[in-house]
């Protein structure tokens, strides 16, 4: 049932490599977007602050409230058509990869922003009051007291988000990016062994996600020891 592995293992390896690369980029840029927007959100005074906050709300609501596949199609088919451009590879990086990574990162950024919002809200109000009563400014209190605690609060949820990204990244196979899912489809078409191939692909995804969970747990423990 699994003898196809001997012939096709390079496909699985390549696909896995692509999935890992895509997930790493998504995690990096998604977290970056989430952190930047979370910091930006603290300024909710004045017209500019209020407008930016409103825009952030719309961004989060849209990307959490619509299917990732539709978002991907909008980036892959919709926007190029609207702007009348043809997507081309940049150097040796395929266009599918660039668009897939952008769509996943923007989608993940919306979730990370929400994770950070919850993490900041979970820091007791007394911490801000203690900082302010000492004469620290709001910015100083955020930087030295609130945010370090918020980061610790968000680690479990952030780790979970990383796991979700690894799994959800399989959706990019529909625009033809040769990730693990896409290559599994190709092996299935060549071998007609849908059960065996998808079980192997599932096992690889499982190894990736459980490995990621373990890393996050280790990292959390390391941080717990510091306090």
């Amino acid at each position: 049932m699994f003898d196809f592995i001997i012939d096709y293992y390079p496909m699985f390896l390549k696909g896995t490599g692509m999935t890992i690369l895509l997930a790493l980029l998504t995690v990096f840029f998604g977290t970056l977007i989430g952190v930047l927007i979370s910091i930006l959100r603290f300024n909710n005074k004045g017209i500019i602050g209020k407008t930016l906050n409103k825009l952030a709300d719309i961004y989060i609501a849209f990307f959490r409230g619509t299917p990732l596949m539709i978002q991907l199609f909008i980036f892959w088919f919709g926007i190029p058509q609207l702007c009348g451009i043809r997507l081309k590879p940049i150097g040796f990086i395929p266009a599918e990869f660039i668009v897939g990574a952008i769509a996943l990162a923007i989608n993940s950024g919306a979730y990370v922003t929400e994770i950070f919002r919850a993490g900041i809200q979970a820091v007791e109000i007394g911490q801000m009051e203690a900082g302010r009563s000492l004469g620290l400014s709001e910015k100083q209190t955020l930087k030295h007291i609130i945010l370090p605690q918020a980061v610790k609060n968000v680690l479990p949820a952030l780790g979970n988000e990383f796991v979700v990204i690894i799994k959800e990244s399989a959706i990019v196979s529909v625009i033809g990016l040769a990730d693990l899912m896409y290559n599994a489809d190709k092996v299935t078409a060549a071998t007609f062994n849908a059960f065996g191939v998808y079980i192997v692909a599932a096992l690889i995804y499982f190894l990736l996600t459980s490995g990621c969970s373990k890393l996050v747990t280790l990292f959390e423990r390391r941080l717990q020891q510091d306090a």
Binding site: G126, A130, G135, A227
Partner: peptide, 16 residues
Amino acid sequence: REQIGMVFQSFNLFPN
């Protein structure tokens, strides 16, 4: 506020 110290019921020490 630098000149007005404050002590809270729930201490509010910085745990980090």
